[in-house]
Nucleic acid binder design. Structure first.
Length: 890
DNA sequence: TCTCTGCTGAGAGGA
């Protein structure tokens, strides 16, 4: 039986004499899943190593345990078939285990500083791709040509020519092909290429290069002259064996394919140079691998930093020795390799530790998402918008690259988070236990979904595949800023120096003093400048104007923001400014096809193609626009800029901002910390943006844009008073006096008297539910009819609600062309008429109402009319909402 | 059940 529970207390380890001699045992006090009293689980012999890693609060799983009575108590013990798994829901990558065997610190360094772009790695990847293609039946030359072409940009950055790379790959691939030919002679050979496997039992995930007759085949591009495979390679193959066992296999053999060992050179007698080395995988190896995996899971939970003393690796052979010494020197960490250089000032080390802890907390939240793949049932996942269930498999079509196009019909119109371009787990019923494969959503509409995948899964369900990519990049950005960052930059960020400015006399914008000053500060900043842009104050225009001024001075500029939408918006305004200043082909948008808005596609940098051409496109670009996540990619990290402008900077975490500003000499942050803060999963230090911290630290380095071009005066009064010290004012009399009467075909006199004022309040008692309110929704539907009757176009109306549930409730009551969305998603846009649904009866309970920045966003979306719909009693119970009520009812 | 966007990902190798 399997025993699973939470560790209740310290683990005791001792030695006992048994009939087999001296044995080790560990007694783990464990509270079982549906129990309250702790019971004891005894882990015998080697499993004591894993048991010793446990701390109270950690999860533990023991498979094939046996129940026994000991001194009158029921307890459990490991048997010969048991596995002991620490924190089973923490999925560890196979490559992490491989790194960890070599040296635990290598695993840490890889996470911290990432793997830079280098040719051996790219070549290795190419050879793997070609190997996969060969297994799927693609022609060798065909595959090489296509795969080399796909990596044009990367190869260009490395200065490689396509022909030389192709030749290089061909050499490795020849060995594979020769070996494959031999393999194909055997009748019972069955092949499967690259499969993503997840084990919920062992907490491991990985992608096997190939599976032959149910056993893993691992491809290595390097040479191995020894008779035996390398130990770490065996460990890697053993990981895949564990994954396959969980999926019903019974694996006792592994194959390692060293492609530099040519099949033709093979020495018949010793077999030394054969590319393929087969080895048998015993129980001992598999259990060893699980113990290694346990070490990683426990270290991640405890937040330990490995020193390198844990393993017996020799530092003098290690390629990461220098990095290792620098990191331990700068952060004053203990390490086997020793330290080089001066430690960072204490405050910087403290900052690094605080933020890396926060990022690791975020990572654990992502891992919780993985665990939900098997811990929640299909319906729960669907209700959570994390899965699309009830699909009907329709057809599979083989694509020329040997990949598959899969089509499924949607049988229910249920909403979901899944969108075109997303990477998903496509399965025939269960994302982990069933047949499943990573797939990309190519097309998605109400009726059907079209996917592409390496294998032809008969798909009936799609699950969101959580990604650690952003957390990985945050950690690297933090590392780069603190360990590699410019000293002057850190002096100003850590308040050891004041930011400096060159005086700029030029006038850039002649009808708005604050905007003009903002541009002058952005252009003249030697370190950084901050532009505080409340709603409707033209910050996008100001950014565009500032970038134009920089470009005119011959500078190279990076334009970034957290979301693709913000990047594209800013780029759109910029294109207008740069029309006669820079050639179109010197403006480049870096990002994925699905992320970049269609009208910006002409500017998007293609990754495939001729290396020289691709790299020239990027390097000749005077303006590059990309999300901050993309700024952390290997390609962008090779780029450098004179200035980085970051829009919506108040919505970015500090490390997120670093990813962009690390690439530039100086930077300009533009945002509004009185609107919504960064989205983070865990409660931690990431919730305050660098923008906000710098505004507090160096108020003189910034300007607030104080003229708004959006709202009627009556509408903006409350937000101005409550959030901007009364500083925010209409830019022109036209703005101040705008009403619905200005719109073609609209007469305010056709509205009921209560709605003629630009701000109105509609008191609705509500239905008392928690996250929806059908009474409010019905009332809102009536209001929309009323506005329509007065001549207002439906597309000019927006409805904002705090909860997603209420958004769908309202959506079902109102016509389709009325935009209904959450506050969070409305940020950044505006409408002529905005109706706000507060969805609260009696009192204002719940965290959503606690952050007042959310009402600032909601109330500053309209241009000409704002209608608040809610229960006056509930709203009156909070001072800020109460003042809002007074203002609205005036 | 509070809100939620990023991103191909997992692995690629050098003695």
């Amino acid at each position: 039986m399997d025993v699973r529970g939470t560790v209740a207390d310290e683990v005791e380890v001792r030695s006992v004499s048994t009939s087999y001699g001296e044995s080790q045992l560990a007694e783990v006090p464990l509270v079982l899943a549906d129990d309250h009293e702790p019971t004891t689980v005894v882990c015998w012999n080697k499993w004591t190593e894993s048991a010793e890693l446990l701390e109270p609060g950690m999860e533990l799983l023991v498979t094939n345990a046996e129940r026994e009575e000991y001194q009158g108590e029921t307890q459990y013990k490991t048997t010969g078939d048991s596995y002991v798994v620490v924190e089973p829901s923490f999925l560890v990558n196979v490559t992490a285990i491989r790194n960890w065997t070599e040296c635990p610190r290598l695993y840490y360094l890889n996470k911290l500083s990432g793997v830079p772009l280098n040719y051996p790695v790219v070549k290795g990847t190419l050879v793997h791709e070609v190997f996969g293609d060969l297994l799927r039946g693609r022609e060798l030359e065909d595959s090489i040509e296509a795969r080399v072409d796909e990596r044009g940009l990367q190869l260009g950055l490395l200065g490689e020519s396509p022909d030389a790379v192709a030749e290089d790959v061909r050499e490795n691939a020849k060995a594979i092909e020769g070996w494959l030919e031999q393999g194909r002679l055997t009748e019972e050979d069955s092949w499967r290429s690259e499969q993503l496997l997840i084990s919920e039992t062992f907490g491991i995930r990985g992608r096997a290069d190939a599976i032959r007759r149910g056993a893993p085949v691992e491809l290595k591009t390097g040479k191995n002259l020894k008779k035996e495979p390398r130990f770490k390679d065996k460990v890697q193959a053993a990981c895949y064996a564990l994954l396959l066992e969980e999926h019903g296999g019974d694996v006792d053999l592994g194959t390692l394919l060293y492609t530099k060992n040519s099949a033709l050179d093979r020495n018949e007698e010793t077999g030394d140079l054969t590319p393929a080395k087969e080895f048998s995988m015993g129980d001992g190896l598999l259990k060893y691998v699980v113990r290694l995996r346990n070490e990683i899971a426990a270290a991640e939970m405890a937040g330990d930093v490995p020193t390198g003393y844990e393993g017996n690796a020799k530092c003098e052979y290690c390629f990461e020795q220098d990095t290792c010494m620098v990191v331990s020197g700068r952060l004053d960490q203990e390490s086997k390799a020793g330290q080089i250089g001066q430690p960072l000032p204490a405050e910087e080390r403290e900052f690094f530790e605080r933020f890396s802890r926060a990022i690791e907390e975020e990572r654990r939240e992502v891992h919780r998402e993985y665990a939900k793949l098997w811990e929640q049932d299909a319906q729960e996942r669907a209700d959570d918008d994390r899965a699309m269930i009830d699909l009907e498999f329709e057809e599979k079509r083989e694509l020329e690259e040997g990949r598959w196009e899969l089509t499924a019909r949607r049988t229910s119109g249920a909403a979901s988070k899944l969108r075109e371009g997303d990477l998903v787990l496509a399965s025939d019923g269960h994302p982990v236990r069933g047949q499943s494969e990573l797939a990309r959503i190519e097309r998605l509409d109400e009726e059907s979904v079209i996917l592409t995948a390496d294998e032809a899964v008969e798909v009936t369900r799609l699950d969101v595949y959580p990604s650690e990519l952003t957390t990985d990049r945050l950690l690297v950005a933090l590392h780069d800023m603190l360990l590699k960052g410019d000293e002057r930059r850190k002096d100003v960020l850590f308040d050891r120096a004041e930011p400096e400015f060159d005086a700029i006399e030029e006038t850039f914008i002649d009808n708005n003093a604050a905007q003009n000053e903002a541009v002058a500060m952005a252009v003249g900043a030697r370190d950084f400048a901050l532009i505080h842009g409340p709603p409707g104050t033209g910050k996008t225009y100001t950014i565009a104007r500032a970038i134009r001024a920089m470009v005119e001075r011959g500078e190279r500029v990076l334009l970034s923001a957290f979301t693709n939408r913000a990047v594209d918006n800013a780029l759109e305004a910029l294109l207008e400014q740069l029309e006669d200043v820079v050639d179109d082909d010197r403006i480049v948008r870096v990002g994925s096809e699905s992320g970049v808005r269609d009208d910006m596609e002409p500017y998007r940098l293609e990754r495939a193609g001729d290396p020289e051409e691709r790299v020239a496109e990027l390097e000749n670009a005077q303006v590059v626009a990309a999300t901050t996540a993309t700024c952390g990619s290997r390609i962008m990290k090779e780029q450098s800029f004179d200035a980085a402008l970051v829009d919506e900077a108040a919505q970015l975490t500090e490390p997120g901002t670093f990813a962009a500003i690390n690439l530039a000499e100086r930077f300009v942050l533009v945002g509004d910390h009185e609107q919504l803060p960064p989205v983070v999963r865990a409660e931690n230090d990431l919730t305050e943006s660098l923008f906000e911290r710098l505004v507090d630290l160096h108020p003189d380095a910034g300007v607030m844009l104080d003229r708004q071009y959006r709202m009627n005066q009556r509408i903006q009064v409350f937000a101005s008073r409550e959030f901007y010290d009364g500083q925010l004012r209409p830019a022109t009399p036209e703005v101040a006096g705008r009403t619905l009467d200005d719109l073609e075909g609209v007469t305010r006199d056709d509205l009921p008297e209560t709605l003629r004022d630009p701000v109105a309040f509609v008191d609705v008692e509500g239905d008392g539910s928690r996250y929806t309110d059908s009474v409010e929704a019905a009332r809102i539907a009536e209001l929309i009819d009323t506005y329509e009757d007065a001549g207002v176009d439906r597309s000019a109306i927006g409805v904002i609600a705090p909860f997603r549930a209420q958004v769908s409730e309202i959506s079902s009551h109102v016509p389709e062309d009325v935009a209904v969305d959450t506050v969070d998603r409305f940020q950044g846009s505006s409408k002529e008429v905005i109706v706000v649904s507060f969805t609260a009866t009696g009192s204002l309970e719940g965290p959503i109402f606690e952050d007042y920045r959310r009402i600032n966003v909601a109330l500053t979306r309209p241009k000409r009319a704002l209608v608040l719909v809610g229960d006056s009693q509930a709203l009156g119970s909070d001072p800020v909402y109460g003042r809002m009520l007074e203002w609205a009812r005036r």
